[in-house]
Nucleic acid binder design. Structure first.
Lengths: 199, 199
DNA sequence: ACTCGATGAAACACTTGCGTTTCATCGAGT
DNA sequence: ACTCGATGAAACGCAAGTGTTTCATCGAGT
């Protein structure tokens, strides 16, 4: 029995850690469905199958819970992409964006007003959701330069991550359609690649 | 005294129409500040200096009031832009976007989650806010083609309005800074113009 | 000056949510 | 088997919002 417990140096925390992730996942779900302002602790408790008391024991209030939930969604790192060509890399990441467009855009929409006034929330969204993505895309550019596919880091590269991200986030709202990968592929071929190649 | 009343063929409605616009303007203000879900009728009534009873007499509920407010913001047409060059037109409209970036992005953020589920709201936002803007920008392209500045309507043009709009909407949220005109100029020169000129 | 419909202020009943507290129960370590 | 800290269920007081209703007042048309 020593072997059983050797895997868990700390007594109970590990069980709590699993549970915590479940609760935070339920929080993100509720957030997407309800929006930040209308999110209720009772709803989260029901989805997470835990009591409201437990929520308040672990986090102080709604803001804390939501911030924690957002930060917890960060470490889910996407597999590294390296197709050998800049266009291939971009298309791949675009398809990935399109796959998650529904959930992602709902989550972002749920938070977009709240982050304008809540600084902690804003930094959570920024570091957990946007920064990794931005760095990810920027690596494509650097690799393309190393390969000689681009002669230098184009000025347009500064706008690439934000544009892709904000297009993915706001297109559903703008015209009621979801992002499909065809649309993004056209964007890459008709806009992104020409801009990168000619600056 | 016949002259005084000659200006008002209808008895009271005209007075109500002015008042209505004030109330709807107050609604938009409250919406930007509070967000759609947390918007309260009491808040609107206080800002508009009218009673809650009046709000419910003129509109049936919150959804109706907000939709009306959004539609009322449509007719405020921006002055037509025509600087003689595509770049000039784009810079001008970009600066105009930047000027209103704070209020506009707050308003959009306030609505972005609600429009995912409320169809009437979605169509109000689309027709009143986005469609006029899109047509406006598209006219730049057409004129540039007529002038011979572009040999044809570039494929990238399809993405231009959405790209500009979504940047204006989401950049404040993404990195906490507002749009300034230097940034926008770089955006046009390094990102938009190359894409338009090389497709 | 008078009338009458529209308005504002305020209270209404009702619902919902927050954050706290109480208490019975459960389950891991001894 | 026993103990003790953590949990879930449920109720709490409090605050806020919805949509309605009442009533006093105001102001435009006669």
């Amino acid at each position: 029995m020593a072997a059983d417990e050797a895997a868990t140096p700390v007594k109970r925390p590990r069980v709590t850690a699993e549970r915590e992730r479940e609760v935070l996942a339920a929080t993100l779900q509720a957030l997407s469905d309800t929006g930040y302002e209308a999110l209720s602790m009772e709803d989260v408790a029901a989805r997470a199958h835990c009591s409201k008391a437990t929520l308040y024991r672990l986090w102080h209030n709604k803001a804390g819970l939501v911030s924690a939930a957002i930060r917890s969604s960060g470490p889910v790192r996407p597999a590294e992409v390296d197709t050998g060509s800049l266009r291939g890399d971009l298309i791949t990441v675009a398809e990935r964006l399109a796959q998650h467009a529904t959930e992602d855009s709902r989550l972002y929409a749920a938070l977009s007003h709240a982050i304008l006034t809540d600084d902690e929330l804003a930094s959570a969204v920024q570091t957990a959701l946007f920064r990794p993505d931005t760095e990810h895309v920027m690596r494509f550019i650097d690799r393309a330069v190393e390969r000689g596919e681009l002669t230098h880091r184009p000025a347009a590269a500064d706008f690439l991550p934000q544009t892709m991200r904000s297009l993915a986030m706001s297109r559903p709202a703008l015209d009621g359609t979801l992002l499909d990968s065809d649309y993004l592929a056209r964007f890459i071929d008709d806009w992104v690649m020409p801009a990168l190649l000619h600056t």
